[in-house]
Write a protein that binds this DNA or RNA. Structure first.
Length: 620
RNA sequence: GCUGGCGUAGCUCAAUGGUAGAGCAGCUGACUUGUAAUCAGCAGGUUGGGGGUUCAAGUCCCUUCGCCAGCUCCA
């Protein structure tokens, strides 16, 4: 809206009772609410619960936190305190590590500050003046930050006795901040540089309403509850232990079964789509990794060993093996495209600090395939892969987003190659009729790519499929096929995964379902529970029949009350419990209890088998 | 890798520098069970590993391994 010269926006908002407004955009520039128009302007008010509003609120929360810290720690020195995606942080140096108790104290102090309702006052000063001020305060980090700013005029914000160097804008006064919480503290380096002093980074979050804050805190609780490392232990799926080594997963029977189910699904689907199974060795001569370029570009992440004085590298990717299959004989245009698939086990050296459950490991299995095709076939091949992605995501009931990354500054290949491949990817994306995002210049140096990110049950995004065109490897390995005209031509190579890493995907599944796997994925689908030891024989009988019908079943023979045995089964999240006793043995049936739903009554064994087969949707 | 926190029974967690404990799980026995925890008993440990301080170390110090969080989203 147009507002005339000389109007103070804060007064305007007050006069018009615009309740949620905390800042404004004047002719497109964000300003504090306490801003007086120097000419008639276009004004757009920013609400506290908008994206920009929240950012301002959180940034101000960071300042208020800094003020609280200054009160509690007289010698505190400050670095930066920005708003981030779900909150804010401030890097401070108080001469010692901070504890949870410190956080509580800081939070209490912040409440006092918000209650006091100090206005945020902006002053414009020269850079020189700002430097003098922060030098006087002994805030050496701030001094360094100010020195790195090119502008001669800078701004300061003050609330109460706390002054900070800041671009703003901020909320009008401290009691605009009502719903906030400090979350955690960890060390971080000044400017992220490990040669610089280590500081304490305090994370917090702030929202427009109590409800939003509570929702977010609940979300964090939910994330904790779903942690695949915790559930993996509780459900006895896998373990990672020190004697074996960090980043190496040990799969227990139920976890291994989960893998098996997914891998069987993968194999079936790949065969359907014209892929052929291949298998390369784990170790390949280092010389070959030099040819591929991995030795120059990826050596840091590889493991090497020596056999009879010859150096070998453990594969971090499967492409070299697949290339060897392609190269094993002369190829004709008639047999292209070749689609080579392998559930390939790869090893990558990840730094110890970044290892994380199944999400970041040092050995994992990729559902990896390489497609060798002609330039003309590229388009259809990418369409085929995206179709496969959609099919797989539908089966697992995941929604997903796609991104395409185009040619970066540093790249190899001709303009024509890039254009051809990028067009093929875009065409395929268009063909899906789904929205996608374009990341200009974000591609790998050897070709453009599509990334797929799935969305889980609580809205988190996880990278799964990637599809990458590659112009280097066919070149480096001199791959050819004989075309119609009898002349050798170079094929295009596409690297692609659908689920990505099986380990990572299982972590996502565990967190997505919170361990409550749907029937077709449940490692154990049904558990037979005899009412008492007297019915062990009949229970065995039922168990054998279900086994024969290829149902994943086990049997609970502990001498306990059925209530307790049912409790165990519920805790283990087993979809069906089959109680058997006198009644059931007489009728050759089972009493079916469904997880979370309770008793479904008595069914014959055949009826139950039919029911469970129908319910798993015939997927597996 | 770096910084900080943590590491006690299979699991979850107790224990002022002063005899390492509980619940669950396990084993044994009793009970013979009808839809989310029956009762009793037994066993379970070089307190992550190594070194040191001390009359005395789970506790304090050093070192090593592992786990957890973080390590620019740039006033």
């Amino acid at each position: 809206m147009r507002i005339g010269k000389g109007v103070n926006l804060f007064d305007y908002v007050k006069a018009h009772k615009l309740k949620n407004v905390i800042a404004a955009k004047v002719d497109g520039k964000i300003v504090d609410l306490n801003f007086t128009l120097d000419k008639e302007s276009d004004v757009e008010f920013i609400d506290i619960d908008s994206k920009e509003g929240l950012e301002i609120l959180r940034h101000s929360a960071a300042h208020i936190m800094a003020q609280a810290i200054q009160t509690l720690f007289k010698n505190a020195k400050f670095a930066i305190g920005p708003a981030i995606e779900n909150g804010f942080y401030y890097d401070v140096d108080v001469g010692r590590p901070l504890t949870q108790d410190d956080l509580k104290a800081i939070e209490i102090q912040m409440k006092k500050i918000t209650a006091a309702n100090y206005p945020f006052a902006r002053t414009n000063v020269s850079k020189k003046e700002a430097l003098r001020l922060f030098k006087e305060k002994g805030d050496e980090y701030k001094v360094e930050i100010i020195e790195s700013i090119p502008d001669e005029q800078v701004s300061l914000y003050q609330q109460g006795d706390f002054v900070d160097f800041c671009r703003g804008p901020h909320i009008p006064s401290t009691n605009y901040l009502k719903h906030f919480k400090l979350l955690s503290v960890a060390s971080a380096y000044f400017r992220g540089d490990e040669t610089r002093p280590s500081m304490q980074r305090i994370y917090g979050t702030a929202f427009a309403t109590k409800e939003d804050l509570d929702n977010y805190l609940n979300f964090l609780e939910e994330v904790k509850k779903r942690d695949h490392r915790k559930l993996g232990k509780e459900l006895d799926l896998f373990s990672i232990n020190d004697d074996v080594g960090a980043g190496f997963v040990i799969w227990h029977p139920k976890g291994a079964m989960l893998r098996e189910i997914i891998e069987t699904f993968e194999k079936k689907e790949h065969l359907k789509r014209g892929y052929e199974f291949v298998r390369g060795p784990e170790l390949l001569k280092t010389q070959l990794w030099k040819v591929s370029g991995h030795y120059d570009n990826y050596r840091e992440n590889m493991y090497f060993t020596e056999i009879e004085n010859v150096s070998f590298g453990i594969k971090p990717m499967n492409c070299l093996g697949h290339i060897q299959v392609y190269k094993s004989r002369l190829r004709s245009y008639r047999e292209l495209p070749k689609r080579f698939f392998e559930l390939g086990v790869v090893h990558r050296h990840e730094k110890s600090g970044v290892l994380h459950g199944l999400l970041r490991v040092r050995e994992f299995t990729q559902d990896d395939a390489h497609i060798f095709c002609t330039k003309e076939q590229l388009n259809d091949e990418i369409i085929g892969v995206l179709d496969f992605v959609k099919y797989a995501m539908d089966i697992f009931k995941f929604d997903y987003e796609m991104e395409i990354s185009t040619r970066p500054e540093k790249s190899i290949g001709t303009d024509e190659d890039w254009e051809n491949a990028t067009n093929a990817l875009i065409n395929a994306l268009e063909n899906t009729k789904r929205p996608y995002q374009i990341n200009e210049g974000d591609g790998a140096f050897y070709g453009p790519k599509i990334d797929v990110k799935l969305k889980d049950a609580i809205g988190r995004k996880w990278q799964c499929a990637t599809i990458q065109c590659d112009f280097t490897l066919p070149e480096r390995f001199n791959l050819e096929y004989i075309d119609k005209d009898g002349l050798p031509k170079r094929p295009v190579m596409v690297h692609r995964v659908i689920l990505g890493s099986i380990e990572r995907f299982i972590a996502v599944l565990i967190e997505n379902y919170a361990g409550d796997f749907p029937l077709w994925l449940a490692p154990i689908q049904a558990r037979v529970i005899p009412v008492s030891e007297k019915f062990d024989n009949y229970a065995n009988d039922v168990y054998e029949q279900l086994k024969k019908a290829e149902i994943r079943v086990d049997i609970e023979k502990r001498n306990e009350t059925i209530s307790k045995k049912i409790r165990y089964a519920e805790l283990e999240k087993i979809p069906y419990v089959l109680v058997v006793g006198q009644k059931e043995s007489e009728k050759n049936g089972v009493s079916v209890r469904k997880r979370k739903e309770g008793d479904l009554g008595l069914l014959s064994i055949d009826e139950f088998i039919t029911k469970i087969k129908n319910e798993s949707g015939g997927v597996l």
